[in-house]
Design a protein around this nucleic acid. Structure first.
Lengths: 232, 232
DNA sequence: AATCGCATCGTACGTTGTACGAGTCAATCG
DNA sequence: CGATTGACTCGTACAACGTACGATGCGATT
């Protein structure tokens, strides 16, 4: 309920440059750091899923005590926030995409966005949180810049950015959730078959069964861009 | 990990018609039932948010013991699933929308979808689960029927349904998350102002500040439909 | 009156996030 | 060189949670 932002909390260092942390027992792990914590959290999430991330387990993997984490991190929520943002780094489009090709640049960035999250399916379920980490902001900034350069009016920029963001996260969440294992697949098939009188269209469309997710994603993106960016 | 579907578990009744549950102490609450549990869960979620729903608290509100819930429900997860689906009932478009107006019908259904969830903001954060309750399936079925009637080819139906679904849930999640309280608003403004050198476009677009969410939602939907449904 | 199945609940257990305060070590200062 | 400080670590402990288990109550059937 309370605002989290606040200002200086007195705790946690602001990592001034030049000071080497050092310190560690001889044959042991390197010292704890936010970077190492987040990286290990991502590993753990990849291996065990959202529910598999416990502070004790994370600490175990780091060769540390559970409470040691709390010097670097306020609480478990923050670990989630950081892990989510960590997965969303973007290095920019390859050379092959020329600067003038705004459509290619947007496609590259948004497809990379979706792909990055699908590589870590837990990240999709973390999207419904208010965390705007630096990597997300970077992507939004880039998106805005490209759209602006492509001719989107200042007044429409806002809506255009959100529309694309919405589409991407929606598609990613759906895909991550319905990326069924074979077991689930069989179960769904049976459940649907059982209800096919009530949902004939769903059955006919084979909605849950065979999907060209990637193709559908690109198509919808195409349509959105056709509308959002004025053709000249 | 295991499949949840399964078949008959021996437990829980399949509520055969005609048998009146009856039974309750004199001046006390009516007997427990899934309907009452779900309705109360929605109330509690509205009041306290996702983290506020605890089995004990829910039972308290129902005037029951915590463990009594488990006769009607397998676990807490199922309460979430049921609550989510409960919020998504759809009664269909009003008379004013003529049968031939497929676009109006789609708009009405999807806007109602989004509005229903925004009335219960917690529901947005529950979307990343694989629960396809009857109300969601109903909506998907209706959506497919309308699209099919509007001329979408059988082969494209699948992708069209998902594209719209993706867009709706993405927009809803975003909106529900960034529907900032005034406190958060001020915090965001300050944080952004502080970073405006790094994110000039975001700043210029006032991305987090003033948004015509509803208008942007409709616009994007328009563009998607323009592309998805063949114009004749 | 005896039996059965539906429905409720009290108690108890294991697990979790984390508050608290004591401990360790390097750098700094006198 | 000894004392002090501040960055960092961790053991212990606690409260809250989901829920397993078995006991209990009650209406209907026999």
């Amino acid at each position: 309920m309370a605002a989290k932002g606040g200002g200086a909390q007195g705790k946690r260092p602001q990592r001034q440059a030049g000071s080497v942390p050092s310190m560690q027992q001889a044959g042991s792990e390197p010292a704890l750091s936010i970077e190492r914590i987040v990286a290990t959290a991502v590993e753990l999430l990849d291996a065990e899923g959202v529910d598999g991330l416990k502070m004790r387990r994370l600490a175990d993997r780091l060769g540390a005590g559970a409470m040691s984490l709390y010097w670097h991190v306020d609480n478990k929520e923050e670990v989630f926030d950081l892990a989510l943002d960590a997965v969303l780094e973007y290095r920019g489009p390859p050379q092959r995409i020329e600067a003038a090709d705004w459509r290619g640049a947007i496609f590259h960035m948004l497809e990379d966005w979706r792909a990055s999250m699908l590589r870590h399916p837990w990240s999709a379920s973390l999207l419904p949180r208010r965390a705007l980490g630096p990597n997300i902001l970077n992507r939004l900034e880039l998106l805005g810049r490209i759209l602006s350069g492509a001719g989107v009016a200042e007044a429409d920029l806002n809506g255009a950015i959100w529309s694309l963001w919405n589409y991407v996260i929606g598609a990613t969440i759906t895909r991550a959730n319905f990326d069924l294992s074979d077991d689930d697949m069989a179960a769904a098939q049976q459940r649907l078959a059982h209800l096919s009188e009530k949902y004939p269209t769903i059955e006919r469309a084979r909605l849950l069964l065979d999907n060209d997710w990637d193709g559908a994603f690109r198509k919808g993106l195409d349509f959105l861009l056709d509308g959002l960016v004025p053709r000249q």
